[in-house]
């Protein structure tokens, strides 16, 4: 049995490393060339995981093209086999891997785009809750409005980036990349209030505001922090956007 355990370990190790030899001790009945048979199996394992990554990162895949993506995916998969049996979660570490990938240096924004796709997928598979309408705020007095705290939709998240990730995402959604200026930075808020995942870009002050609200700060505190970032912070717009994105699922007053 111990031999089998060793063989099993060698087998799984060789499975994800195309350059590895066929593990010693492997036999098959009536097959002269065990190596070829193992290669077929190894190829199927790798091909299915490459497909899984491609399905999880369609924009990264489109950005770099099939050949490059396959190379990137094989390199990632070799060192990062799935750790949970749910492939829709596969690739959590893919953005970090991309950031370190030498041949990806010509596309410095690629890692953040991959991170955005992780956020998108997390939102897509997150729990369902009913968002509330902005008119619910009218039931509170001006004093209480300042001290409002917000229950946030389970699918909501924010991603800060030094690259125009929202424009890149939008370009792929619409099929028209247009003119994207890589010298712009975009932060994105992601939420799935109903069937579709929604994205919106947030400028720096709005991002501070959303962060504070999502971290449980009061409306007054969040406004103060955003106004500190930018005196011209447009509270009315951001407050409306908070509800338009379906981020708010409940309201209460902090005493």
């Amino acid at each position: 049995m111990e031999d089998f355990a060793i063989l099993h370990r060698k087998f799984t190790k060789a499975l994800l490393k195309p350059q590895h030899e066929v593990p010693e001790g492997l036999i098959a009945v009536k097959v002269p060339n065990i190596g070829r048979r193992f290669d077929v199996y190894r190829n199927n394992v790798m091909a299915s995981l490459v497909e899984a990554l491609k399905a999880n990162f369609p924009i990264v895949s489109a950005l770099v093209g099939a050949n490059f993506f396959n190379g990137l995916a094989v390199a990632f998969i070799s060192d990062n086999p799935p750790v949970i049996p749910m492939l829709f979660r596969y690739g959590v570490e893919f953005p970090a891997f991309i950031a370190e990938y030498p041949s990806g240096a010509s596309l410095p924004y690629l890692s953040d785009v991959a991170q955005l796709e992780n956020h998108w997928r997390a939102a897509y598979h997150a729990g369902e809750t009913q968002s509330i309408d902005i008119t619910a705020v009218q039931e509170f007095s001006p004093e209480d409005q300042m001290n409002l705290v917000f229950e946030i939709h389970p699918s909501a998240s924010i991603l800060k980036s030094g690259w125009p990730i929202y424009s890149i995402w939008q370009g792929h959604e619409s099929g028209d990349m247009g003119q994207i200026n890589l010298e712009t930075s975009e932060n994105v808020v992601i939420c799935r209030p109903q069937v579709d995942v929604m994205l919106a870009s947030l400028n720096e002050d709005a991002c501070v505001f959303f962060r504070q609200i999502m971290n449980g700060q009061t409306l007054g505190e969040a406004y103060g922090a955003a106004a500190e970032k930018n005196e011209e912070f447009d509270l009315s717009y951001s407050f409306g956007q908070l509800f338009a994105m379906g981020l708010v699922t409940g309201l209460s007053v902090k005493n």
Binding site: Q19, D39, V40, V50, F68, N70, S103, M177, N181
Partner: peptide, 22 residues
């Protein structure tokens, strides 16, 4: 045996080409 050889060309060639810096 596509994924055995690692014989892919290591150059991005997708929609990234339409993104241009100034």
């Amino acid at each position: 045996v596509d994924f055995q050889a690692n014989a892919w060309k290591n150059v991005p060639a997708g929609t990234c080409e339409s993104i241009e810096n100034t």
